[in-house]
Structure formats: structure tokens, C-alpha cells
Design a protein around this nucleic acid. Sequence first.
DNA 1: TATCATATGACTATCATTATCAAAAAGGTG
DNA 2: CACCTTTTTGATAATGATAGTCATATGATA
Lengths: 154, 154
Amino acid sequence: MKKNFEEMSYDELLTEFKNIIKANGLKFTSQREAILRTLYDNPQHFTSENLYMLVKQRHPDLTIGIATVYRTLALLEENSLVSSISLGIQGKKFEIANKPHHDHLICKECGKIVEFGNEKIESLQHQIAKENGFELTDHLMQLYGVCSECKKET
Amino acid sequence: MKKNFEEMSYDELLTEFKNIIKANGLKFTSQREAILRTLYDNPQHFTSENLYMLVKQRHPDLTIGIATVYRTLALLEENSLVSSISLGIQGKKFEIANKPHHDHLICKECGKIVEFGNEKIESLQHQIAKENGFELTDHLMQLYGVCSECKKET
DNA sequence: TATCATATGACTATCATTATCAAAAAGGTG
DNA sequence: CACCTTTTTGATAATGATAGTCATATGATA
């Protein structure tokens, strides 16, 4: 039973996070809150390292280590509060999962990510699955290319 | 100017490889040939490590190191003779690029993989890239679901 | 607030990939 | 074929992202 966190406010997400924490016998900490807050306020794609630095910048009083960022991102991802994409050589990036479903267009040169949604493709995917006797539950679609700015630089 | 290597025989691929090598002022070596040959004879997805072991097995007289496998895969990929996909935690996998383009429908229960191609989706992807100022070079599309056999077993 | 399990940060370990470098091999050239 | 130059090679070290370890700190519960 997968939760749907689309369009949730920060308070709603926080409540969900606390419920998940409680349900798993874990503890609510200021580090975990700071990470969720930072992800919420900056709905972009972060590497673990980028997020670590931004959390420190936004919460100067808080001591936090990179290991905690990795651990918290893993916890959030397991519970579908953040989603991630793997970008080969450029590493793994995370984003908060309170946005409507979308796929990614990725620049191979600079790593820029553009989000898009396309109903026609979604419906074709379901059709393909159906034709093959599959019940579609999920998909991964990443388009790779070179963005206009990187094309100029060539 | 991207070459299309679909349906090429081994000899044709080898000739292409030699041309690429010559055009770049590089040298043709038995290690490079063994890697191409092994990829051709085994049109599956390999990690660098898997491929390294298979090449050694199939060419016992040849000395070859893992570094050469990495270097040759990079060379082949740069020149579109092999393609790769990044599978998150499962790492990067390579396959020879003489097959018609296809995507994958994957059963989450039994791991069965069905290959499919869909022109409409391809053309929509190009359209999306264009709308965002990207020049599309590649894409990754994997559909996840439950196949008919696994549905029965539930 | 006392207790105790979990979380933390600093550190170390791991793993895939990449870089280094001396020795070997390719491939022109005469 | 022998020579010469450049590239390639394998072994190994280096790297960098992520995961594990552990003593201490900190939440949650009573």
C-alpha cells in the first residue's frame, strides 16, 4: 500500500514523517526535521553532498554529518517521501516527493534536469503493458540529451 | 553524425571498429578484438566485471586486465558500438549496439524481461526534448509491473 | 527525570571506477 | 625484417561516493 504525497504541505509531510518514524520505532530528531525542511523549501534535485551543505548553511546551529544525510535520505526514500534518480557517472540525486508524477529530461553535459509530464506516453505505456499481459505498477523514463546552453559551447 | 550499427554482422562491426581506431590514431589490439567478439557472441547486458571474467574465460591465452575492459567499453560506447544503461544500485551495464532499439518491460515478481519498441513514444520523446531546447541522444525507459503468470499465482 | 533504545558525528571500510607508469606491442618506414 | 615512435597494456595505487562502526548524545516513555 503505497502512500501518495502529492501536493502535500510541509506540515502534512512532517506529520507523515513522524508517523513513519513512530511506526518503525525510530526517533524524531532535529537533524531529520532539518533535512525534510530543506528538501521541502528547495524542490530541486540534490546530491547527498549538495543537500548536506545546504542543510548546514540553513541551520548553522545544528551539528550534522554527511552520514546522517545519507541515512535520512535512505529512510525517506524507503517510505516514498523522497524519490531519486541515478545519473550514471554524475551520481544519485534526490527530490522531495510531494510533486505530481513527472519524468526527467537530463543534459549529459552539465547534468541539468528538466521535469516533464506527458499523458500520451503514460497511456501508451499502459497499452504496451496490457498487450503483454502485464499489470503496470511503475516506470522509469529518463531522456538524455544536450541542452541548448551546452550546445552553444561546442 | 551518428552511425547506425543495427543488424550488423561481426565482420562488419569489426571493420567499423578498425575504422574508428584508425581515425583516432589508435591501435588495434587483440584485447580490443576479444572484447568486441565476446560482446557480439553474448548479446546480453554486462557489468564491466562480468564482461572481464567472460573474456578471460573465452580467451584463456590472452592476458587482459580489468582496466582494459573499462577503457575499451568507454571507447566502444563513445563510438556507439555499445550502449549502456545505469540501473541505480545495480550499477552500469553494457550491451552491443547491433540490435534494433528497444525498451524493457520488467516483471517485478519473477524478473522476466520483455523487449518492446514503440514508434509513437519515441516520436513523443523527441518532441518533448525539442520543446525544451534539448537535442535528444538517448533514453532509458523501463516499465515495471506484474506479468500474467505471476498474477495467477497471487 | 531516569532509563534505555536509537541517532549522531567522526572516522574507517568498501566498492566500482580511474589514473599512473614502466614494460610491451602495434604499425609505419626504410 | 629491424628500427623507431606512439599507443596500449596490466598491475597497482588513487579516488570518490556510499556504507559501516562505535562511543557518546539525545529522544521517548514511564
